[in-house]
Amino acid sequence: MSIAAKANTIWQYANPKKFLATSERVLPFFWATAAICLVVGLVWGFFFTPDDFRQGSTVKIIYLHVPSALMAINCWLMMLVTSLVWLVRRHHVSALAARAAAPIGVVMTLIALVTGAIWGQPMWGTWWAWDPRLTSFLILFLFYLGYIALWEAIEDPDTAADLTSVLCLVGSVFAILSRYAVNFWNQGLHQGASVMRAGAVTGTDTTEKVSNVFFYPLFLCIIGFVLLFIALVLYRTGTEIRARRIRALLARERAGA
C-alpha cells in the first residue's frame, strides 16, 4: 500500500459520520476489556499481593496512583497531538477529541494528586509537600482548568477550537519549562519513576523498585486505564460531535433556512 493510501485510511475517520459509526462499533470492546483489566488487576493487586516490608499495605494504592498519573500526562499529550492536527488539517473531530479529553485529564490528575496525598500521609507524615513531582502535577491541573475554562468561555466553536489549540501548544512548552524550573527549585521526597526502569523489572535494584509481584497486576491496571481512557475519549467525542451537530442545526434554523 502506498503512503498516500495509508494516510487516507487514517484521515477518513475525520468525517464525523464515519467516526461515529466506527467508534460505536469498537466502543463495547474497549469498555469490556477495560473493565476486565481493571477488575482483575485491582483485585489481584489489593488481595493477592504481599504487603511491602517497609510500606505495609499502603503500597497498594500504587495500583490507582501510577496509572492515573501516567494517563494525566498522556492525556495532555493526546490533546497536544489532536490540537496540532486541527491547526494543520482543520478536522473538526480532532478539535472535539481534544475538548472531550480535557475533563478526563483533569479527573486523572485529581486522582493522582488525591491518591498521592493518601499514600504520602503515612509514608512521609504529611498530606502535601512542595515536592517537584507533586508541584508539577498541581501546575498541570491548573493548565487543564485554564484550557477547559477557555473552551467554555468562547461561543463560536471554530474560534474556541483555534484558541484552545494554540493555548495547548504554548501551554505544553510552559508545562515542560515549569517541570524543570520546579526541579531546580526544590529537590524532593518523591521516589523516582520506578515502574519502567530496567532495574525495577529485572529486580537488580533493591532500594527503589517495584518487584515482579507488584509489577504484573500494576501493568494490568495501567493497560486497563489506557483502555478506559480510549473508551471515554471515544464516547465523549461522540457526544461532542452530536452537540456540535445540534448547534449547527439550530444555527441554520435561526438563519431562516
Partner: peptide, 13 residues
C-alpha cells in the same frame, strides 16, 4: 442555499 440536512460532512453544516 443551505445544504440538505442529512448531508453530514466534516463541517457539520
Amino acid at each position: 442555499v443551505p445544504k440538505p440536512v442529512d448531508d453530514f460532512d466534516g463541517d457539520f453544516l
